[in-house]
Design a protein around this nucleic acid. Sequence first.
DNA 1: TAGATTGTTAATCGATTAACAATC
DNA 2: TAGATTGTTAATCGATTAACAATC
Lengths: 213, 213
Amino acid sequence: MSVQSVSKQTLQRLPQYLNFLKSMPRTGAANISATAIADALGLGDVQVRKDLALVSSGGRPKVGYDADRLIADLERFLGYDDVTSAVIVGAGDLGRALLGYGGFAAYGIELMAAFDRDAALAGQNIHGKPVFPAERLKELCGRMQIRIGIIAVPAEEAQQVCDALVESGVRGIWNFAPVNLSVPENVLVQNEDIAVSLAVLSKRLAQKLAERE
Amino acid sequence: MSVQSVSKQTLQRLPQYLNFLKSMPRTGAANISATAIADALGLGDVQVRKDLALVSSGGRPKVGYDADRLIADLERFLGYDDVTSAVIVGAGDLGRALLGYGGFAAYGIELMAAFDRDAALAGQNIHGKPVFPAERLKELCGRMQIRIGIIAVPAEEAQQVCDALVESGVRGIWNFAPVNLSVPENVLVQNEDIAVSLAVLSKRLAQKLAERE
DNA sequence: TAGATTGTTAATCGATTAACAATC
DNA sequence: TAGATTGTTAATCGATTAACAATC
């Protein structure tokens, strides 16, 4: 299947549409217009229409889009169909929160297990997923053909965990530790930096408060 | 103090620079060039220089920037100087993880307390911050002059929590629940959508894996 | 038919990159 | 002086918006 290319901005809006559509009360005839989506999310209607055109061809003049079909089209586009196995390393607060997040499936990511250094956690189930001791990481990731590793350990351990994941065949790393990981060229790293949002929030608020003066 | 305007893209890169500079080993003469930063973060050197020019005027030809001064300039620009009080609502896994995140201060956000519906949590300290029962939210937020509320409760409760925060005078809301909150016009909402990153990761990986075929 | 809505083509806007002058 | 680096001005690139035709 060809992977269509899509701009980063558009790609960031698509999950919002999906999210919004899923949260809509499903009452009877479930059609929705691009304009309604745009209003709800504070975007331009033309922009929404253009984004959706990349994903679905189900829009009908005067009627809008069939919500269920649009959800299905968005999920297909975003990867629902070809499932990738993932593990989380680090079963602390953040790791647990991620284990409890139910939305992975919609993006084609299947969370198989967690790993933790703490032997007391190993053997437990968290949100229905098994926790294994860190020593078994390489062995099990190799065996389970894990493609994505999610790093939720303290900054000091992140590089080491990253190396172990790469050795066991992981191709993509979602890094929640505030560190710049070094990886071989064929491995993809995506940094999840809470500080980015924090800065944006802080700045927007400062601007807003300043306006009012 | 005037709040300079800065593009969204630039604003998203500034915390990365700050992060990187802070994680650098501080060995002797601590100068760093825009090119070095760019290489480390996978950006263009001209872009880094242009971003930094908005924040600092400490760059010297041939020498680069003084790392400590650049850190200070970034923090000042990002709001370190004018501190805003915040609370977290919801002391579940995610709330706890946020309470343990030490980086708020660098962006001028001071985390005062957490609230939770669960009476058993109230009275405890988590990562050194007090947890109060949800019933006291309005009273205490009003009294403490809280400006930012961080919502880390399940989706079903988010709107209700949001309303309570707004009533008690909160001006900015950082929402981790996958819901579109409705707020009065003078309140700022920033949605933290893990699904956005997830989608980006999933798509980038699919593209990467497809390339190799 | 008239009105609402989609989808496309052209114009505008903004961000990135390239080229270059300034400086230590 | 020569080379490395900053910072600025102009050119390019890409994304958003506006205008409009198509359609139910």
